[in-house]
Structure formats: structure tokens, C-alpha cells
Design a protein around this nucleic acid. Structure first.
Lengths: 352, 352
DNA sequence: TCGTTGAGTGTAAGCGCTTCCACTCGGCAG
DNA sequence: CTGCCGAGTGGAAGCGCTTACACTCAACGA
């Protein structure tokens, strides 16, 4: 019988004593490192069982000089996007025998200290988007902590994983042009990362078609943010083709391209509020393909990101860095997919 | 100038040497424990600065016997529900100076080992729903690891935090009866936790009104699971009042009460597939009030859970347990709110 | 003038493990 | 019979910190 409730857990010394061997032998028996006779191993295992011994993680980590844990830093966890990425990350990290520490920087003052603390707890980490100042990223890189940047521009000596943005944005824009729209608005400010790449694609295609790209209207990347932006953008009367459609005078755009799905959902809400029909009066598109996009009214045309895969890839890249399997940084770009639904209107060609 | 890129980070010994003092003094200066003269402190701080010294978390933890970290175990992170809870948890834990380790048990084989490992890395943990076998929970409790159970029936010597289920379920059911519905179906099997409580409320009200409660149709708590369930439940012709509506013969129910929003969204999809109008031909309700519920077509009548607060409360309860501020277990029940939208039909009384 | 005191500091003992090194002791070749 | 080898084991040195305890020494009251 096990010693029923064993207070704080036995140490390797107690196991050694009970088994009548030295702690070195216990360690060897448990970790299969070095020779141990069958009889001794047996005794050790029995003692371990009886004391329900679990090696102290701290002791092990201190002695081995590794944590067997990874960190991940998020701007926010509230969106479905981050949650999905996190899921993919955790799954793979756990498979690889690493625990996962999370840190959300949302509205935090001392981000830098929090990140530093995190660094001290892990063997490597993933940093998401532009959650962390360049100086801090630089500090992490210099400390030789393996680092993977997710959805953020690459940095020397760190890996990067992101999803394709520009050409999908081009496809999306081309699709809208195919609908015959000619006045556009963009909701959601440049972020110097993913969103900026998307806008680049949009701008390029619009310019190529002789349409002057609108300035993106800054807004928070939430439903509420989108709602506010929507009210602003859709307030005017229907604008004429050719007049690039930043709201507040230029007239209501025919299509609003949103930085992500949440913003798009907010814009749709705003349209409803203003008595406008989507896509009848105005087309709206999102980005990410979160669950709500599929169930929204109208269902959202968007670009699907491989969110889970994004997290999984980051975890794998990090693992390589940590084990030293690879020491040249790599940059991975995952494909995205245009998902046409009804929020951009019945398409003259592609709809069957 | 700092020693530019400082390899693996200095130790307290190097700081002590550089400052010309002992490591004890360095520790005291840094942690403000015990007296240190102004001059000495100054020297120490300078040395720390120059070496960009950060105390090793492992060393500190080992010496102090605490991790300054909490764990949380999830069945899955994919749903918006869990992500929100996690966000609330992380936010508070971080405020309280604790890192957060996550563990998802979704489809994992060696859950028990993973949980055990987690226990060794934290000062306390939260376990979600029925992710973990009772035996393992018991083992954790016996190891004296502070434990908070989230949305799970209380256990001796552990805290519990959950949201109110039964009476909200009664309110929801009463609301549906107010619509005049008399044949019902329930989608999503008992789980021995939250969902069971919900069904208890539903059953009670139906029985009180002389309606024999249907058997819940088991399904996964995902959109896909709901879709499958919906196809089954809605396949028959409209049933007559009085015939309790488990599908497959008894006829199509007038209302489908779903275990959560994702299931409800799936049922709506199934209804659409079958050419049925929601709420015209069948009313559907969810539970949780995830983002998609608000944006769905039709918008989902549901019960809002304070997801963020759930996580935050768990974090606070755990903190009390860890610091020993409180040693009697407590059980907290957070209020929920019936959110009436259009998926249950235009209400004869409540709609204005 | 002589304890007494307490601020300021150093020494060293852990915390729980891993692992290098040295040692013992049969078995086996020379 | 001696020497060598390797399997099996123990001793002990870390890993990087905190902290109890001991110590020094100037200031101060008696």
C-alpha cells in the first residue's frame, strides 16, 4: 500500500534510502542512463511506487539546464483567431514533451518585465505579431533564447511563421472588382504586419485597375471597433464610381474590405443599424474565417487562415531551434484560401 | 556599456564578484530583504546593470520552494467559450504575479502523466469540467496542491467555480413554453456537469407543465456535432403536441434546446439543409452566448455565461488557496442571463 | 571605559536533481 | 596466478539561488 497521503512528495534521497541504494543509482534506474542490475532496478521501482515519488521538476531542470517548456506571447486571447493558433501550438508542443506558458500583453503596463520573466521559464518562445517592442525582441535574440515570430516581419537570427497575405488580398480584391464594384473602403489601420501586407495587395490591384485606393480607416480589431468604423464609412449617400470612397464626404463605398472578420461583423451590424442591406447596398469582406463568419447573416466572404497550422508550425520550428537540429533561421509562409460567401454579393461569374 | 551579448546570462556569483561583495548581499540588495548600505546597493545595482543580470527562475524557485506559476487544464481550446475563460484566468493570474501553464487534454492518451507533470510545475491549478478522471483529481488533492474546479461538481478539499445553470434553464424553458411550443427535443448528452444541470432545469419545467421531457440526443459539442444531431432530430414531419419529441418517429419537435451555442448553430445549419425555417418551422436555442450567437442567422436565443469572469474568479480563488489566506474550500456560482433573440421566434409577450 | 546594540556583511547549508569520476569485484585472457 | 576489463555502484560536485547564523565594528548609554 502506498503511504496514502504523502504530504509534499518524496525526494530522491528517500527513495534511495528505502531501496538501499545511492541517489545516483536511483537516477540511473529511472532515466535509463547507465547500467543498473535488474535486481536493483526492481528495488528502486518498488520504492518509487511505495512513496509515489515524482522527480521534482525544478531539480531536474536545474541539473539539466533546461525547462522542457515553451512560451507564447499574445496580444490578446479574446479573438477566435488567437485561440485557434494557441490550440495548434499547445498540441504540438505537448507532443514534443514541452509544457506551454502563455502570456497575454493586452493592456499590460510592464510587458517588458513580463516577457523577461517568461524568458527565464522556458527553453524557447513564440511571439505573436507586434505584441512586443523591437528592443525587447532584440534582447531575447541576444540572450540566445530560441525565438519564433508569428505573423510578424522576420528579424535576424529568429524564425518566422506567417500566412500568405498579399496575393490572397489581391485575389479578394479582384473578386470584388468582378462583382463590378468600383468604390471601396478599407476598415482597420495598417499594423506593420499582416494587415499591412493585406492592404498592399488590395492597393496594388485597385491601382492596376485605375482606382485610387482609399486610406484605411483605423479601428480596433473587434466587433465593436468594426461597428464604429462601419457607422463612419457608411454614413454618406451612395458614392459615384471613380470617387475613391473614404467616408465622410466622398460618399458611401460599394464595398468595404475589412482587416479581419470581427471588424467585418461589426460593419455588417452598422449597416443593419443604418438600414442598409448587405450585400445589396454594400458588400463587406473579412479575413481569417472565424466560426462566426460562416454563421453570420449574411455569411461572410473572407480569406481563411490556417490558424491551427500556424500554431503547430511555430511549435515545430521552435523545437528544431531548441534541439539545435537546425541553426539557420527559416521563414515559413502558409497558404491561405479565398472563401466566397454571400456578403460580397451574388457573383456574376463564380456563382453557379 | 553592457557586455553586449551576454551568452547565457550572468549568475549571482559574477555579480557579487564584480560588485566586490558576497552573493548574500547581492540577493539582499535585489530583493530588499535585510539591511544593505546605500553604497553597497549602488555597487550591486551597477554590476547587475552591466551584466544585465536576471536571477535564474529555477534557482529562485528551488530555493523558495515555489513556482510563482499556475496551471489550467482544458478539455479543448477550440471553442470560444474556453478561450474566453482562459483570457480571464490569465489576466488575473498575471496581475497576481503568476505565470500560466496550459494543458489541453483533447484527444490525448496519457492525460494522467501530463497532468502530473503540470502539477510539478505550478503552485496550484485549475481543472476544467470533466477533463480529468476523478482518481487523478483525488491524487492532486492528496498531494496538497491547491486546486480549483471549474464547471465541475465540487470535490472535498478543492474549490469550485461554476456558473448558474439550473434556474437559467428553467427560465429558458419557460420562455419557450410562453411561445406556445409543446414538443421539444434536447441536443447534447448529459456530461455529469454543467449540461446535466441544464437538462435538470429543462426537465423540471416541462414536467411541471405536463410535458414528458425528451431524452437528450447525444452529440459532440461542436457545430458539426450539432449538425448531425439536427439532421436526426428534424428529419420527421411536424409532430403533434403532446407527443414528446425525440426524433426518429415521434415527429419533428417545435423547439430544439441545445447544450451549447455551437450545437445550436449546427442544428440551424441542418434545418437550413432540410429546407426548414428557423424559427418559423422550428425554434432553436443555445447556451454560452459566444460571438457567433449574436451574428448568426437567425440570431441565437441563448444563456449568457460570464466566461471571462469564470476564469478570473478561478484565478482569484486559487490565489487565496496558494497564499493560505483561506483554507476552507469555497464554492462559487456565477449568475447567468437569458438572452432572447430571434431563433426562438417572435415572442407573444416579451417582444415589443 | 566597557558592555550592548544593531546595522552591515560574509559563510555555508540547503533546495532536488544529474552526472563525472573513482572504486569494487567477478570473469576471462595471458 | 596475475592483470585487465567492464558491469555495477557510490561519492561528491555542481546547477543558481535564499536565508539562518555568525561575525565585525562603530555608536551609544551607563
Amino acid at each position: 500500500m502506498a503511504n496514502s497521503d504523502e504530504g509534499q512528495g518524496a525526494t530522491i534521497y528517500e527513495v534511495a534510502q528505502r531501496a538501499g541504494v545511492s541517489i545516483a543509482t536511483v537516477s540511473r534506474a529511472l532515466r535509463n542512463t547507465g547500467p543498473v542490475s535488474a535486481g536493483t532496478r526492481e528495488k528502486v521501482l518498488r520504492a518509487v511506487e511505495e512513496l509515489s515519488f515524482t522527480p521534482s521538476r525544478l531539480g531536474v531542470s536545474l541539473a539539466q539546464g533546461r525547462h522542457a517548456a515553451n512560451g507564447i506571447v499574445f496580444p490578446d486571447l479574446s479573438g477566435p483567431y488567437f485561440a485557434e493558433v494557441l490550440l495548434g501550438y499547445e498540441e504540438v508542443a505537448s507532443e514534443l514533451g514541452r509544457s506551454v506558458l502563455i502570456l497575454s500583453t493586452r493592456g499590460r503596463a510592464a510587458v517588458q518585465d513580463l516577457v523577461r520573466d517568461l524568458v527565464g521559464r522556458v527553453d524557447g518562445m513564440v511571439i505573436f505579431g507586434r505584441t512586443v517592442e523591437d528592443a525587447v525582441v532584440d534582447e531575447i535574440v541576444r540572450s540566445r533564447t530560441p525565438l519564433v515570430l508569428l505573423a510578424r516581419d522576420p528579424v535576424e537570427r529568429a524564425d518566422a511563421v506567417c500566412s500568405e497575405n498579399t496575393s490572397s488580398a489581391e485575389a479578394l480584391t479582384a473578386h470584388l472588382l468582378g462583382h463590378g464594384y468600383s468604390t471601396f473602403a478599407m476598415a482597420g489601420d495598417d499594423d506593420g504586419g499582416d494587415v499591412t501586407q493585406r492592404w498592399t495587395g488590395v492597393r496594388r490591384v485597385l491601382s492596376d485597375h485605375g482606382i485610387r485606393p482609399p486610406e484605411p480607416l483605423p479601428c480596433e480589431f473587434t466587433v465593436e471597433g468594426g461597428y464604429e468604423a462601419g457607422l463612419t464609412l457608411l454614413a454618406g449617400k451612395a458614392g459615384k464610381a471613380g470617387k475613391a470612397g473614404r467616408a465622410g464626404g466622398a460618399g458611401r463605398p460599394q464595398a468595404v474590405i475589412c482587416a479581419d472578420d470581427q471588424v467585418a461583423l461589426g460593419v455588417i451590424l452598422a449597416a443593419e443599424e443604418l438600414g442598409l442591406d448587405v450585400p445589396g447596398d454594400v458588400a463587406v469582406t473579412g479575413w481569417d474565417d472565424i466560426m462566426a463568419a460562416r454563421h453570420a447573416r449574411p455569411a461572410l466572404t473572407t480569406v481563411r487562415q490556417p490558424m491551427r497550422l500556424l500554431g503547430a508550425s511555430a511549435a515545430r520550428a521552435l523545437d528544431e531551434l531548441i534541439r539545435g537540429t537546425r541553426n539557420v533561421p527559416k521563414s515559413e509562409i502558409l497558404p491561405t484560401q479565398l472563401i466566397v460567401r454571400s456578403s460580397c454579393g451574388p457573383h456574376p461569374l463564380e456563382e453557379k
